[in-house]
Amino acid sequence: MILWIRARRVAAVLGTGLVLIAFAAALFTDVSAPLVSWTVSHQTVPVLTFAPLILAATLALCLESRLPEAELTSIRPVPILDTLLITTALAGTLAITGVGYLLTHADEALVLARNTVFLTGLMLAARSFTARGGIVVATGWVLVVILVGHRTPTEFFSWAVTGLPIGAWHATIAAVVAITLGVLLTYLTARKLP
């Protein structure tokens, strides 16, 4: 197990990722930046919009840090261990954002948690088809929402899940669906060589 943890670079990569998310949540709650939009002008975007990619990218790197052929012909339950890794990473993020919310009562912490679940799910689902390209899909999603997700300078279209406030229940449902699909596809396609 320790060898598997070292192979997946859990401490070095995922640990750093979680620390960075904690820093981002502490430093950038309530910080917005005026970014380009193609559908409206004068919009500002919360800087934390980008933060979920920290977990998605570090988790993707951990999952890619493997010996595909040896793991495929292994007698250890590697797909189950990977599912555990994903669950642990998400639990870590939810814990960090939960503490953040308890301390600040800022909705941004909850939005960060929801978006991290959604984007990690999206990355995992895409990764099942495009291997390392999964993180590109998640990054693309974030940029697309910023560029064309605004209906007005302060409102997003309903498809722009990661831009919506925490009260948008369909966004939360989308996040749950995405992560379920992502984990399931990761498990089911574990026997696929890159």
Partner: peptide
């Protein structure tokens, strides 16, 4: 470490 890891994978 890499060789050990494959050994671990093989049980």
């Amino acid at each position: 470490e890499q060789v050990s890891y494959t050994g671990w994978l093989k049980g």
